[in-house]
Amino acid sequence: MLRLAGKRLASMILIMLTISFILFSIFEGDKLNVATKVLGQYTTMDQRLLWLEQNGYNEPFLTRYVHWLYHFIQGDFGTSIQFQAPVAQLIGEALYNTGILAFWVFTITIAISMVLGVLSGIAEGSKRDRTITVLSVLTTSVPEFASATIFVAIFVFWLNILPGTSPFTSGFRWNEIVLPVLVLVTYNFGYYTRMMRASMAEVMTSQYVRTAILKGLPYKRVVMRHALRNALIAPFTVMVLQLNYLLSGVIVTEVFFAYKGFGLFLYQSAMFGDIYAVEACTMVAVFVAVLSQFISDVGYTVLNPRIRFS
């Protein structure tokens, strides 16, 4: 158990280091490009060279990388070119907003998919099962920017009950977060439901569930106590791994609704060429993805005692 966790942790750090090196080479490999980005298009070559000299860019590439990494690990991400503020502070605020969004999306998605997954998994092949399966395929087929368009048409322009953007100009407001959550839940719940359904259907055919039913236990209790607990193992890993994909969806949704979160910040920085901000955002995104992979791997062994021996 500990050995596995240690091994995973080591490979996680190796991957993060590799990616940090690749990103540094892409963004800061060409130092004149950095100077141009920071000082702007309309500066002279002398100004750029002076800036490079003053900011220690004339060191060899590897020295610069180690130096950058040293500062980066300490949380010194540099100053955003676009917003003229420390990147760490900007990312913190953005992550807080995205955290609120992700929390609601995750909670609601898991609640819906558990209920639907169990309902269709315990009656495989029934009409209810078919309906739920078709519904989940249907909603997973509508990409976020398309469903956002459709929801805005319905709730903003037709029914006129929700705002079409979520800029939070006058503080946090509940009605501004409804549409982003709705869009993300719609796209994501289908996949989770199908995972849950498959897992539940498999458990329902197992010997111990049959025994429990034949023993005369109430059906509800068999489903809730015996089947559901065991059926949760496989979807757990998948749900945590899905965080990686959820983040892509979060970027699109935040851009669509101008929701001031991590995704919008990353997008704006990438489009503007805000080097330091993109570097930091990408590393944070990769960190979240790698961490979720780690949790999913280790969590699986904790939840499923059978694979500890293999």
Binding site: S11, I19, L247
Partner: peptide, 17 residues
């Protein structure tokens, strides 16, 4: 594994910008 550690859209943003 390195490439899969990028959230897809982040990878596309980095490459295409």
């Amino acid at each position: 594994n390195v490439l899969l550690s990028f959230p897809l859209l982040v990878l596309y943003l980095v490459i295409l910008t």
